[in-house]
């Protein structure tokens, strides 16, 4: 008899985390996908699910390399859109594997160039999760899960973009591996969660222009720390509130550190789950980067919304 649980606390947290990570990825460089976590986290009683997710976010400012914040200049704007198709499948007793296929669109506008719209297939992500201990099953031992994922460079990297404002860039251009650990515990209708993730990208060769020599670049390792709380309600809906801190080291170019390219950001996310019946549910989230200097570095500041429709099988 497998372990089952009928609250959607875990799902609400997954939505919050996926919203936070995806928003963060968009802010970086049009990486698509949610790393090691997808909006398709299975609730303990579920065996499989498929879903469709849609995100919209707007860039309202910029954190510079010294950490100072500046609002977007007048007349400039960026709106990022993403649609994800995903599926998850239960494996073993407490494991799950997921696949996420993203489609990315970007609209940028500058006073000198006008508006430009581009997009396409993003970076496909495959991920896995295994719950060694389920939250709430023990009074003192919290839930512990291992997370892993791979992001494939199926999108168009920025250096291959053809449009003047690079709105057709939809991916990072490098394989990315993710590992993480999630710890969570329940207290009646409440759940608290702490998740740590590390992402490493493989090096890639970039040709800035036909006449320039190729360079070997590798983005720095990215660490994400997520902490938050969720609450379930008698109708099995749930709300979650999270903070995500992400830091990334300097990139390397031709083996040498590219000083000043490190990044960091803080993202606050609210998410929720609303079951429509035992097999369909709506998920949603809102994310926001506080426009406070030193909370970010080499990042755009974004605010975004996500909504998702999920069909599951028990």
């Amino acid at each position: 008899m497998s372990l089952r649980r009928s609250t959607f606390l875990e799902v609400a947290i997954a939505v919050a985390i996926a919203t936070a990570i995806s928003a963060e990825a968009r802010a970086q460089s049009c990486c698509a996908g949610a790393g090691a976590l997808t909006p398709g986290r299975l609730a303990p009683h579920e065996d499989a699910l498929v879903g469709l997710s849609s995100r919209v976010s707007t860039v309202f400012g910029q954190f510079k390399d010294d950490g100072s914040y500046a609002s977007s200049p007048s007349g400039t704007s960026e709106i990022d859109l993403e649609q994800d198709v995903f599926a998850s499948l239960r494996v073993l007793r407490r494991g799950q594997v997921s696949l996420l296929v993203p489609f990315v669109e970007t609209r940028r506008r500058f006073p000198s160039t006008g508006a430009e719209l581009g997009g396409g297939l993003g970076d496909v992500n495959a991920s896995a999760r295994y719950d060694f201990v389920v939250a709430g099953s023990d009074r003192y031992l919290p839930g512990i899960a291992a997370l892993a994922g791979v992001t494939f460079p199926t999108g168009t990297p920025p250096d291959s973009a053809r449009k003047p404002l690079a709105t057709d860039a939809t991916g990072v251009g490098a394989f990315q591996g993710n590992l993480g650990i999630a710890i969570e515990q329940t207290f009646g209708p409440w759940l608290v969660n702490a998740t740590g993730l590390v992402a490493q990208r493989l090096a890639r060769t970039v040709s800035p222009s036909p006449n320039a020599p190729a360079i070997h670049e590798r983005l720095g390792a990215q660490w994400s720390f997520i902490a938050g709380v969720a609450r379930s309600f008698p109708d099995d809906s749930a709300l979650a509130l999270f903070a995500t801190y992400t830091t990334e080291g300097d990139a390397t170019i031709d083996g040498a550190d590219a000083t000043g390219t490190a990044r960091r950001s803080l993202l606050v996310t609210a998410a929720g789950v609303l079951p429509l019946d035992d097999r369909w549910r709506l998920q949603g989230g809102a994310s926001f980067q506080p426009p406070v200097s030193d909370l970010g570095r080499n990042q755009t500041a974004i605010a975004g919304l996500t909504w998702t429709l999920v069909r599951s099988w028990m």
């Binding site: 008899m1 089952r4 609250t7 389920v134 709430g136 099953s137 023990d138 009074r139 003192y140 009646g188």
Partner: peptide
Amino acid sequence: AEGKSLGCALQTKR
């Protein structure tokens, strides 16, 4: 003889 059970995880002491 064994039906699928779908309720919340019991929050036991141990």
